[in-house]
Design a protein around this nucleic acid. Structure first.
Length: 623
DNA sequence: AAAAAAT
C-alpha cells in the first residue's frame, strides 16, 4: 500500500506519539454483549492476556446510549477466537492455520496466503518523486476541523498504540508504513471499537478504508470462528462492505487484504463484469469480510451462495451514492429484505465525503443510535487543490484541452505528461475524446460503463503506470479511487451536481500532494454556477468575476436550487441532520460557517477550526 | 439526461 500523507507527519512525530501513549489514555474497547444471564463480559483487550496489564480509564459504553445487541454471530465459544497475543496461534478454525494439525480438516491457508505487500514499493514512486513533494502542511494537520454528535462520543486516540488492535494487525499497520492514525482514524476507530454505529464524512485519501477495516478485522478476530456447515456451499461472511463501483470494490479489497494479512481473517471481493466462477471458489474457501458491488451480491444471494445471517458489520463506502435514486432500492433490498440481522443487531458504518440531508434521513433507517462524524481534510483545498474555472464553449473545448496538455507537458519534468484525469459527461463522449487525443499525439485511455471489465481494469492500470498518462472518464471514476500522482483533474464537462464535482476534484491533491483542478464552464452549466462559486469561495479559491455574475443572475432563488443547493452536504462534510431545525432545509445552513447555530458539537481540534480555512471557516471533507 | 450496478 502506498503510504499516506500522514506518514511523513508521523515520522516527524514518532517520538512524541510514543511518549503520549500512556496507559491512562487507553482507547475505549468494544462493548460487550449486554445479554442477561450470560457469563460476565471480559473486555476483548483483556482476553487471552495475563491479568492486570491495563486498566482502561474510560468507562465502557453501556446501557441504551451506547450498547447494541451483539452481532448475530456474537456468541463467544470458549477458546474459539483469533485474538492471539503473540504470533498467530493455531486455532481450531477451518481455513486457518489450525488445519495443519488436522483439527480443522482443511489445508493450511497461512502458507498459501499471497503476500499482499509484494508489489508495494516497486511502483512509480521514484519516477514521480522529482515532480512533486511540495511538502506536507504540518500545521494544517493539527488544524483539522472535526465535528461529532450523538450520545457518548468516545474521545479520539492519538496513536495506534492506544488502540489494542492486536499484534497481527499492528504488524500490518507497520508494513503499511502507517505510524500515526489519520484524523478520520483517530475518531472513527474508537467509535467503531465501542460497537457504535457511525455516519462519517471523511476523505478516502487519508485512510478511510483503514478506519472501518481495522475495527472490523479486530472484531472478527475476537469473535467466533466461522462455522461452516459440511457440504453447504453457502458462505456466511461476518462483515459486508458495499461500494458503488467495481473498481472501488477492487481497491477496498486490495487494501483490506493488507490489513488482514496473517490474521486469519479472509477477505473476498465479488463484483459484476468478471467471471463469477472464481468468485464462487473464493467464497467456498471461506470468507469473513465480503467486499462487493450490489448487483453481484444480489446475484450471489439469490443463488444462495452467500447468506447475510452472520453479518455483524456492515460498511457502506460512498454511502450517499449508495443511497441515491439509482441505488437505494438495491441497497434496501440487501440490507432490509434479505437475511441480514436488523439494525441494532449489527454494526453499521457509513462513509462518504458528501452527505446531503435527504440522504442522511434515508441512511438513518440503517443505523441504530449512531454517532455522526465529520473530519475535514488536511489543510484547506486552497493549499492542496488549486481550482480554476474557465469559460469555454463546447466547440472550443478540444482545442482548449490541447492547450492545457501542451502547457503541462512543457512544464513537466522530463518532458513527460503528468497524470491527467479528464472527466466527461457521457460514455460516447469519453470514447470520442480518447480517440481524438490519441490521434493528436497524447496517449490516452478511457474508463466508462460501456467498456468490458477487462478493458476498464486495463485502462486504470495503464493510467496508473503512466503508460497512458491521460485518462478520460465518466463518473465511474469520480468517487473513491485512489490514484497516486494525478496532478490535474480536468472537468471537460462539468457535472450537474456540485457533490460530484467535489468527488471528482478529490482525485487529485491526495496524500498530501498538491493538485490542480480545471473546469470548462459555459451556459449549459449555469445551474451549477451558484454552488460552484460558493464552493470555491469557501475553499478560498479565486472566483472569476464572470462566474460570480453567472451565479447572481442565474439559478438564484426560484426554488430551483434542487440538487445543487448543497443542503449541508459538501462543505465540511455536512452536518448531522439530526441537529438541523426540522425544516425542509432552508439555505440558512450555507453561511453559518462557525460553531454558532448548533450547540454541543465537539471540535476535536478546536483551536484550529477555521484557521487557514478562509473567512467562512469551512472546508470540504472530500470523499 | 447520464452514469452506475447482474446475466
Amino acid at each position: 500500500m502506498r503510504s499516506s500523507w500522514a506518514d511523513a507527519v508521523a515520522n516527524a512525530e514518532t517520538s512524541a506519539a510514543a511518549a503520549s501513549a500512556s496507559p491512562n489514555n487507553v482507547a475505549p474497547v468494544a462493548v460487550g454483549p449486554s445479554r442477561g444471564g450470560r457469563a460476565a463480559y471480559v473486555p476483548p483487550h483483556l482476553r487471552n492476556r495475563p491479568p492486570s496489564v491495563e486498566s482502561p480509564a474510560l468507562p465502557l459504553a453501556d446501557g441504551p446510549s451506547g450498547a447494541r445487541q451483539p452481532p448475530a454471530s456474537g456468541a463467544l465459544p470458549a477458546g474459539g477466537n483469533r485474538w492471539g497475543g503473540g504470533p498467530i496461534r493455531d486455532v481450531a478454525r477451518p481455513g486457518f492455520g489450525g488445519g495443519r494439525g488436522g483439527g480443522g480438516g482443511w489445508h493450511s491457508r497461512r502458507e498459501q496466503e499471497a503476500n499482499p505487500f509484494a508489489n508495494d514499493d516497486e511502483t512509480t514512486e521514484e519516477v514521480f518523486d522529482s515532480q512533486e513533494n511540495s511538502g506536507i502542511n504540518f500545521d494544517a494537520y493539527e488544524d483539522i476541523p472535526v465535528e461529532t454528535s450523538g450520545d457518548n462520543v468516545p474521545p479520539p486516540v492519538n496513536t495506534f498504540a492506544e488502540i489494542d488492535l492486536g499484534d497481527a494487525l499492528n504488524e500490518n499497520i507497520r508494513r503499511c508504513k502507517y505510524v500515526k492514525p489519520t484524523p478520520v482514524q483517530r475518531y472513527a476507530i474508537p467509535i467503531s471499537l465501542m460497537g457504535r454505529d457511525l455516519m462519517a464524512c471523511a476523505q478516502t485519501g487519508s485512510g478511510k478504508t483503514a478506519a472501518f477495516c481495522f475495527p472490523i478485522i479486530s472484531g472478527i478476530m475476537r469473535g467466533p470462528p466461522a462455522q461452516r456447515q459440511r457440504g453447504s456451499r453457502t458462505a456466511y461472511p461476518h462483515a459486508l462492505i458495499l461500494s458503488p463501483t467495481r473498481e472501488l470494490s477492487i481497491q477496498i479489497h486490495e487494501e483490506a487484504r493488507k490489513f488482514a494479512y496473517q490474521t486469519g481473517v479472509r477477505v473476498v471481493v465479488a463484483y459484476g463484469g468478471a467471471p463469477i466462477n472464481q468468485q464462487l471458489r473464493d467464497l467456498e474457501r471461506g470468507v469473513d469480510i465480503l467486499v462487493a458491488t450490489p448487483g453481484r451480491l444480489v446475484d450471489l444471494l439469490e443463488r444462495a451462495r452467500v447468506s447475510l445471517q452472520h453479518i455483524g458489520y456492515l460498511a457502506l463506502d460512498e454511502a450517499d451514492r449508495m443511497l441515491d435514486m439509482g441505488f437505494e432500492p438495491q441497497i434496501r433490498r440487501i440490507v432490509e429484505q434479505m437475511d441480514m440481522p436488523p439494525c441494532g443487531q449489527r454494526q453499521t458504518m457509513l462513509f462518504s465525503a458528501t452527505f446531503p440531508k435527504e440522504i442522511q434521513r434515508l441512511a438513518s433507517d440503517f443505523l441504530y443510535n449512531y454517532i455522526f462524524l465529520a473530519v475535514g481534510r488536511v489543510g484547506s483545498s486552497t493549499d492542496l487543490i488549486v481550482q480554476r474555472v474557465e469559460f469555454v464553449l463546447d466547440s472550443d473545448k478540444r482545442s482548449h484541452l490541447m492547450d492545457l496538455l501542451h502547457a503541462q507537458r512543457d512544464s513537466g519534468a522530463h518532458g513527460k505528461q503528468a497524470l491527467t484525469l479528464v472527466f466527461v459527461e457521457t460514455k460516447r463522449g469519453a470514447d470520442s475524446l480518447e480517440h481524438w487525443l490519441c490521434t493528436n499525439g497524447f496517449p490516452a485511455t478511457t474508463i466508462h460503463g460501456d467498456r468490458t471489465q477487462q478493458e476498464r481494469e486495463q485502462a486504470l492500470r495503464s493510467f496508473k503506470s503512466g503508460a497512458t498518462p491521460i485518462l478520460v472518464a465518466t463518473d465511474v471514476a469520480a468517487r473513491g479511487l485512489d490514484i497516486p500522482h494525478v496532478a490535474h483533474v480536468i472537468n471537460f464537462d462539468l457535472p450537474n451536481d456540485i457533490d460530484d464535482y467535489v468527488h471528482r476534484i478529490g482525485r487529485t491533491g491526495r496524500a498530501g500532494k498538491t493538485g490542480l483542478a480545471t473546469a470548462f464552464f459555459n451556459e449549459s452549466n449555469s445551474s451549477l454556477a451558484r454552488s460552484l462559486s460558493e464552493l470555491m469561495q469557501e475553499a478560498n479559491q479565486e472566483v472569476p468575476q464572470w462566474l460570480s455574475r453567472f451565479a447572481a443572475t442565474r439559478s438564484y432563488g426560484g426554488g430551483g436550487g434542487g440538487r445543487n443547493r448543497r443542503s449541508g452536504g459538501a462543505r465540511f462534510g455536512g452536518r448531522d441532520f439530526r441537529r438541523e431545525p426540522s425544516s425542509k432545509g432552508g439555505g440558512g445552513d450555507y453561511y453559518g460557517g462557525g460553531s454558532s447555530g448548533y450547540g454541543g458539537g465537539s471540535y476535536g481540534a478546536s483551536s484550529g477550526y477555521g484557521g487557514g480555512y478562509g473567512s467562512s471557516g469551512v472546508t470540504s471533507a472530500w470523499d
